[in-house]
Simulated scan of single mutants.
Amino acid sequence: MTGHTLVLRLAAPMQSWGTRAAFNDYRDSTDHPTRSGVLGLLACALGHPRGSEPGDLTQLDLAIRIDRPGTPMEDFHTIGGQSATQVVPSADGSRRRGAILTRRAYLADAAFTIALTGPSSLLQQASDALDQPAYTPYLGRRACPPAAPYNLGIHLGDTTTALATAPLDRTAPTGKTTITVDTITTVTHDDPTATHTINDNPHGQRRFSQRTLARSTLTLPASLCLGNDPNLRYEQLHNYRYNQTN
């Protein structure tokens, strides 16, 4: 039986997908959205309290298409330290004296297509929440809001169909009719196609377990590319979401 897939477009000037739960002097970012980060985005939209258990959202699986890989970058943060007596609030409720120095990694100008599968009722609930979010969704960090539109709706078919037909957020290559992109899917730990693991299965209260992934390439028609004209881009995204039979 053919199921349904919720398709998201995650694009922004900056996004960051960390894989380390502990806050230290370096905040990392992997080169693609994490499961914990995407489920966290949905949890924000649904109004889940920060740090709560993921609950029903764990029923959702995701596949990723890397439309634009973006450029890795870092910035340097200084929090506090303006005076010898100033103290900085900590997450555990205590206060830390002096300055906190951190480096933080980001992806600049990246774009990803996310295909989420699971119970139809849960997909619909998540889609409705993304249209009217309880809390502002963000791409890994609160300073990284997604570009609109990020909800491309629920579509008939599996993740393979979604990743092969969703608009591609990049410029078509000159003189070519096809374009090759990377995809990332969840597989079992003993799957021969597995390429790497990542610690991004959320269990609440900053607890995570490992997930096995397979990275592969997908060749698509260049006509899927959105290009740079803003009016045509939004028209294509609108048509993809609404000109369909669910």
Rank of each mutant, 00 (worst) to 15 (best):
R206V: 00
C225H: 04
R68M: 07
T195L: 04
I79C: 11
P221I: 01
G51C: 05
N201M: 15
P145D: 09
G51S: 02
P202Q: 00
D25C: 11
L116A: 04
Q15E: 14
T160E: 13
Q132K: 14
T165V: 10
S94N: 08
K176G: 02
P145M: 05
P33A: 09
I79V: 15
G80I: 03
D109N: 12
T245P: 09
C44R: 14
A172R: 11
L41N: 10
H77F: 13
T85W: 13
D182M: 06
Y26Q: 14
C225K: 02
I64W: 05
T2L: 14
A22T: 11
S216N: 13
L139M: 11
D182L: 09
R20M: 12
A105Y: 12
L163P: 05
R241C: 01
R9C: 12
Q124P: 10
I66K: 03
A84R: 14
A45M: 12
L42Q: 03
S83T: 14
Y138K: 04
R97L: 07
R241Y: 03
T186F: 05
P230R: 06
P202A: 06
R95S: 15
P72A: 01
I79P: 12
R65K: 00
R95M: 09
A166M: 02
R9P: 11
D56I: 01
T136C: 11
R9D: 11
T165M: 04
T159D: 14
A12C: 04
N199D: 12
D191R: 03
I154P: 01
T171G: 12
C144M: 10
P173C: 03
G140I: 00
T5Y: 09
Q132I: 13
A11Q: 10
P54V: 04
R20C: 14
R97T: 06
R9N: 07
T185V: 05
A21I: 01
P167V: 00
A111P: 05
T174P: 13
T174I: 13
L122M: 06
F112H: 10
V88D: 08
